[in-house]
């Protein structure tokens, strides 16, 4: 009787824990490699970074794949101008329903330091928003549309913060690009509005990797199957890298794409303690500017290991 009662009470736990542990659809297990392939192809062709966030999902020790996620959307990005040699004019990225994606704009010049504009932003499509420390969207809407020019300095900061909140809770493409979210199951296509349609007169967000320092606390505990990644410094030259391939992802609140600094091979897990890796991430509690960081892998006891 007691156990039945406990079992019934477990049935009433918060939605987010139920959603987090939802079984992955078995037939969708194969395309996980496609996502890597698509991401790698984008990176190789464009020579720029991209990052994506996945909530939940732990990579396999053997394959670096994602057992708890399944691809459900295709995000397409096209440059209206057709792009140049460095820019793949038609990005395609496969994502899951609880995954967000942000694609930076094409490199502007050989001197590009890595700071750059965003070409497409889609927050997690079915992610929970509760529990965030950010300004809520409702609160943000009260400030975001106030006149910036006539505001006091203090109010300006509040208005800009409110605008950032709204911008990063919305789906859009930068002007000069076209983007779609395609539901891969139903085939339904949702064209993304342009930034200026949604936010006339507002400034497009910019990657600025050099201004903010990201501490270990900023990432929390990130386990990469026996390794803990500790942030050691912000990498300001990340986006200039020519062909850094995604190597693996790990489980954390702000989930990331990991890039080996050099010669990393896709779908292998060869990070050892002491190796440096570049990671990019975004999540509900971080801003665009801390999106690119350098990390160091340190030996870490897996929570799955038996207690000594």
């Amino acid at each position: 009787m007691k156990t039945e009662r406990l079992l019934n009470q477990i049935g009433e736990i918060d939605d987010r824990y139920i959603a987090e542990a939802a079984p992955a659809a078995k037939k969708e297990a194969k395309p996980r490699r496609i996502r890597w392939a698509a991401a790698a192809a984008c990176l190789c062709l464009a020579g720029i970074g991209l990052f994506a966030a996945i909530r939940g999902g732990r990579p396999s020790k053997a394959e670096g794949s994602f057992p708890t996620t399944s691809i459900s959307y295709r995000v397409e990005l096209t440059s209206d101008s057709g792009g140049d040699e460095q820019w793949d004019p038609a990005h395609v990225q496969l994502i899951t329903a609880d995954q967000g994606i942000c694609l930076p704009a094409s490199p502007k010049s050989p001197d590009d330091t890595g700071a750059g504009e965003v070409s497409l932003y889609v927050p997690p499509i079915e992610a929970p928003t509760e529990g965030s420390d950010e300004m809520s969207v409702e609160e943000a809407e009260e400030y975001a549309y106030l006149d910036l020019d006539s505001a006091t300095e203090e109010m300006k900061e509040k208005i800009l913060e409110a605008r950032r909140t709204i911008i990063f809770h919305s789906r859009w493409v930068a002007d000069g690009y076209s983007g779609n979210i395609v539901n891969v199951i139903t085939g339904e296509v949702e064209p993304l509005p342009t930034f200026s349609e949604l936010f006339p007169g507002w400034d497009l967000p910019v990657y600025d990797t050099s201004q903010e320092h990201v501490t270990q606390d900023g990432l929390g505990v990130n386990c990469l199957y026996g390794l803990e990644l500790t942030v050691v410094q912000v990498a300001d030259d990340f986006l200039r890298g020519a062909a850094r391939k995604p190597m693996n992802r790990f489980d954390a609140d702000q989930i990331i794409t990991v890039y080996p600094p050099e010669n990393g091979s896709m779908n292998t897990l060869d990070v050892k303690a002491g190796d440096s890796v570049f990671i990019s991430y975004f999540g509900k509690n971080c801003s665009m500017s801390d999106s690119v960081i350098r990390a160091e892998a340190i030996e870490h006891t897996s929570p799955f290991d038996p207690e000594p």
Partner: peptide, 19 residues
């Protein structure tokens, strides 16, 4: 209790006793 658990332990627990 679930919020305080490591994510992997939590998922395993929920998979077992909810699902």
């Amino acid at each position: 209790f679930l919020a305080a658990l490591p994510p992997d332990a939590r998922k395993i627990f929920v998979r077992r006793y909810w699902y």
